[in-house]
Amino acid sequence: MAKTKLLGEFVKGLWRENPTFRIVLGLCPTLAVSTSIVNGIGMGVAATFVLVGSNIFVSLVRNIVPEKVRIPCFIVVIATFVTIADLFMKAYAPLLSRSLGMFVPLIVVNCIVLGRAEAFSSKEPPLKSIFDALGMGIGFTWALIVISAIREALGNGTMLGFSLSKTFEPPLFMILAPGALLTIGILIAAINYFTHKRQG
């Protein structure tokens, strides 16, 4: 019983409550960094780390922190984990950290992280919160990978940095902001269409 419940908390973030495609949260970093697959993976991993860390901590202090000052407390916790992620990325993956630039520190204001703290881990025990965070983090990561794979292939003519075709002149707008909006819009529309169809 307990095991299936934990698994349920994990699985829901992957599809049914996918932060990008279903809840449509955290779109700002999704639009900005999904220009290459490597960026997408890096952003996803960093956000997952922050989600797990802040979810555990918020869940641990949930009975001590009074309702009225919970938001500042959550923000301090999240900002701490984001800064740790940023510093470690700078130290051990400098190239990735450079290509993500400002968007690693900006995980602080990612709605997914504060959203999970507010909606889930401030009410649930730590173990459940970990599974929730992992599900949401991985859900966010695969969404980023899908979006960035489409944009990298169409906008830059490459896949993970490898050139796909020599004759294809990639349309630049796919790498720019319009490409991100189009890709995400079409993906969400397609997912909505197929879920509705399945439900009849």
Binding site: V61, I64, V65, P66, V69, C73, V76, V77, A79, T80
Partner: peptide, 15 residues
């Protein structure tokens, strides 16, 4: 409230 927030901030600073 101030104390709780202060303790959390202090921990964060140390980390």
């Amino acid at each position: 409230f101030g104390l709780i927030l202060g303790v959390i901030c202090l921990t964060a600073t140390l980390v």
